[in-house]
């Protein structure tokens, strides 16, 4: 039991540190458009978002109860707004932030609907 926990810790620290080292050393090269300024920063930010999203997806897949899955979906929805903001800076196209505004409101309403469903009642209460 004790040994298994220590082994899991060592494995987790190794994987986490490895991914962070990849983020710092090799940003995603020329993913979207050519000749943009600050593309290295965009690549590193997208790596961090991918890492965080995989944690959310792990919780959506594994979560023992339905509440855990809904929490992870809510958090995933909020993080997409941050991704939209970063895309706005690095590509210089201002319509990405429009997606962000719409996403905030839509994610809020869908979370409310899922919470209502979890409560076990209809929508009219």
């Amino acid at each position: 039991m004790k040994l298994g926990k220590i082994l899991r810790w060592i494995l987790g620290v190794f994987v986490f540190g490895g991914v962070l080292a990849v983020i710092i050393l090799k940003p995603l090269p020329f993913l979207f458009y050519h000749n943009l300024p600050r593309l290295g920063f965009l690549g590193r930010a997208i790596y961090i978002f991918i890492l965080a999203s995989f944690m959310c997806i792990y919780r959506i897949g594994k979560g023992p109860t339905g509440a855990d899955r809904i929490v992870a979906l809510d958090i995933l929805g909020i993080m997409i707004v941050g991704l939209c903001a970063i895309l706005t800076i690095s590509t210089g196209r201002s319509w990405y932030i429009d997606i962000g505004i719409a996403w905030v409101l839509q994610s809020f309403i869908s979370t409310l609907a899922l919470a209502k469903y979890l409560e076990g009642k209809g929508f009219d209460e």
Binding site: A67, V71, D74, I78, V81, V104, A115, K116, L118, E119
Partner: peptide
């Protein structure tokens, strides 16, 4: 502004619903 206003309300709703379920 929308994010600060809506996010705590959503978490409140999830907490109440999960405790009732």
């Amino acid at each position: 502004i929308f994010l600060i206003l809506t996010s705590p309300v959503a978490s409140h709703a999830i907490a109440r619903g999960s405790h009732k379920s």
